[in-house]
């Protein structure tokens, strides 16, 4: 961990302003940032603690949706009565992630910014375009079993590791942020995470210094909410494949996927294929997949996971 200075922000505006200075980073739960700082994958010179800005509330919106403060802990979000009732897929996704201890610290905003678990990203002696642009990708011809098959590029095949973000993608959440100039904007979740392309180190649409203040959910979808996470052990592991789904009573359903994409993955075509069944959804969702020999199984596993959801839905 490189030396840094530390300050507690007194207001959202002050935090955003301070963050615009070179080398500054926000720290919220710290569960991912400190992990990466110890390995010098992240090397901020100044940390702005944004835990005390009152961003920890969950409130209804005028539109009938829900505004989730960026500092709401994963545990609290999953346990929130409204979320449990109206956005159960979000509760389920959160509870499928990490451990109880981590969920007690990890925040809504921080989880959106969680970085990949690609092992080449994690070993600073290895080439990684995400960590060190231009150094190459160790994973494409290396150990890629856990990595992405969709949205990847020749520069990077890292998977997005979040469960929560998959549910937010499914729910068409908006990410609310405040900029260094105090300006506020909302970014649709679909546009929030960026594909790697030639610039895998640029992972989201936030501008330097921009602080996530909340995540807003539109009004509830109804329907049956499920989140199914398939992994190599029963708990406390990242997804090989995860599927978030809302099955509507009208036969219309929607799907989002984790573990397979360079970002939380969702396609209109997959949603449209819902009435045709699991195989059709899988085919639509996996269109354009570029698997390696090691992670090609994720295509079949995605289809199987969807089949499982359809089977349970019918049961």
């Amino acid at each position: 961990m490189r030396p840094f200075t530390y300050s507690r922000a007194a207001s959202v505006e002050e935090a955003a302003k301070t963050a615009a200075t070179q080398g500054a980073r926000f720290i919220a739960g710290g569960t991912n940032l400190l992990d990466l700082m110890k390995l010098q994958i992240e090397t901020p010179t100044h940390l702005i603690d944004v835990n005390h800005l009152g961003l920890d509330r969950i409130e209804p919106t005028a539109e009938g949706g829900l505004k989730i403060g960026a500092m709401v802990r994963n545990t609290d979000l999953a346990a929130d009565k409204t979320v449990r009732r109206d956005y159960a897929v979000l509760s389920r996704a959160l509870l499928a992630g990490a451990s109880g201890q981590l969920r007690n610290k990890a925040t809504t905003g921080g989880n959106l910014l969680q970085r990949t678990r690609c092992p080449y990203f994690y070993d600073t002696r290895m080439p990684c375009n995400k960590r060190q642009p231009g150094s190459g990708c160790g994973a494409i011809k290396g150990m890629s079993r856990s990595l992405a098959i969709l949205g990847t590029s020749d520069a990077c095949i890292a998977q997005h590791p979040s469960d929560m973000a998959v549910a937010l993608r499914l729910l068409d959440a908006q990410v609310d942020a405040v900029g260094a100039d105090g300006g506020r904007r909302s970014i649709p979740i679909a546009d929030f995470h960026l594909l790697p392309g030639e610039t895998p180190h640029i992972e989201n649409a936030l501008k330097p210094g921009e602080l996530i203040t909340s995540v807003t959910l539109p009004k509830p979808l109804g329907g049956t909410h499920v989140y199914r996470k398939v992994r190599d052990r029963a708990s406390y592991a990242f997804a090989l494949v995860s599927v978030a789904a809302v099955f509507g009573k009208d036969g219309r359903s929607r799907f989002a996927f984790g573990g397979i994409g360079a970002k939380p993955w969702r396609t209109d075509a997959a949603d449209a294929a819902a009435p045709s069944g699991a195989a059709a959804v899988a085919e639509a969702a996996l269109s354009g997949a570029r698997p390696t020999a090691q992670n090609a199984f994720k295509q079949q596993l995605t289809a199987r996971t969807l089949a499982s959801l359809y089977r349970q839905k019918g049961a």
């Binding site: 530390y6 507690r8 569960t31 400190l34 545990t75 451990s99 201890q101 610290k105």
Partner: peptide, 29 residues
Amino acid sequence: CDHGQCGACTVIVEGRRINSCLTLAVMHE
């Protein structure tokens, strides 16, 4: 592990269990 991967460092802060390896002391004033 010092990286939030094992839970050996679990303590209870403000009534909640957390991994004490993935939080800075200075954040707990």
